[in-house]
Design a protein around this nucleic acid. Sequence first.
DNA 1: CGGATGACAGATATTGAAATCTGTCATCCG
DNA 2: CGGATGACAGATTTCAATATCTGTCATCCG
Lengths: 199, 199
Amino acid sequence: MSPTTETLTAERILEATEEVLRRHGPAKATVVDVARALGVSHGSVYRHFRTKAALREAVTKRWLDRTSEALAGIAADEGRDPEARLRDWLRALFEAKRRKAGHDPELFATYSVLVGESGTVVEEHLAELTAQLTGIVEAGVAAGSLAAADPAATAGALFHATGRFHDPCYAGEWKRPEIEGELEAVLDLMLRGLRAPVR
Amino acid sequence: MSPTTETLTAERILEATEEVLRRHGPAKATVVDVARALGVSHGSVYRHFRTKAALREAVTKRWLDRTSEALAGIAADEGRDPEARLRDWLRALFEAKRRKAGHDPELFATYSVLVGESGTVVEEHLAELTAQLTGIVEAGVAAGSLAAADPAATAGALFHATGRFHDPCYAGEWKRPEIEGELEAVLDLMLRGLRAPVR
DNA sequence: CGGATGACAGATATTGAAATCTGTCATCCG
DNA sequence: CGGATGACAGATTTCAATATCTGTCATCCG
């Protein structure tokens, strides 16, 4: 089962890096460890990723992209009521984060550190999420059920106002049982404001 | 004016501790430093505060109480329109935090660390702030200008939804120029939902 | 007597020498 | 020739010895 028989691809390096990060944590995971796990020299890893930071960013991007893709399904479900989609999307974002943080806190902490390092990648991820939200708000405006002068700004406000329920810096709060009710209270307050006045 | 001539009070110890924290930062400030600054032995400090943690908590409490008192003025101004008071209170909270973080980032970071250590004290501070907010919401409900079935829950939602604009973990964001507009967008969205429907 | 002191034990932090890591590149191999 | 290698320099981390700190308490002093 010598891994050296397969070609060394960026993909295989990323998988090995995830494994090394899972095992050693963000502080102790080294490029040498990754190379060792793949049975190659560390020089070979540098052929595919210019720096250790670039390698870590690529791992972070993969992880963030998995979240985006899961949510894209809800955002794109054109058949459903936009208000319900908005609620479900924000609830799904919260549940996904909470599940990860609760199920494997160390791995979640590891990725939180990576996210803190990877400026550009994170910005793009947040832009993608906000774009999905904007799409839902626009659908609501088009259908006449939601009122928003500037859907993109409104989506931003929705995302910022729910930070407590998706930002890793609040991960400790997600264990408290009241947290679900707190999300519902924020959702109720905001959606009351978003609903188009009945004429 | 040798300080040794004055009596050693909890108050004087707190002042000296603030000074030592300001100078050395949270990691390097020791009880021995505080005693040295006061010209006494460190055993004397332990006569007034059972542990180093208790001393740090007392310093934290003083700092947090200063913020609460400044905001209490806005919350208690019964003469003004509750919606305007709500906006001003949340804006004042944001401005106070932003000013501190911008003016002396090191000191702000120091207090952020202390806040992270001082569980109970911080909980009480948050309870006090939420109580002030609840008072404003109740005044609005009483005046008929705001609609809230459960003012305390609504106040909690308002506080949670504006976390981005007062929680120290977002201090880095407060330097961006767009941040003021983002707060206004969140306030607009929430206050639209809070406003009592015109009959 | 009530409050301040400083010696002390165990816990924590600092320090500097040795080990390891990052990133490069001349060299090797299929 | 194109990709893998491992020696290397400089940066970073580890580790163990050393120093400092926390919290207690028997003792001292006004």
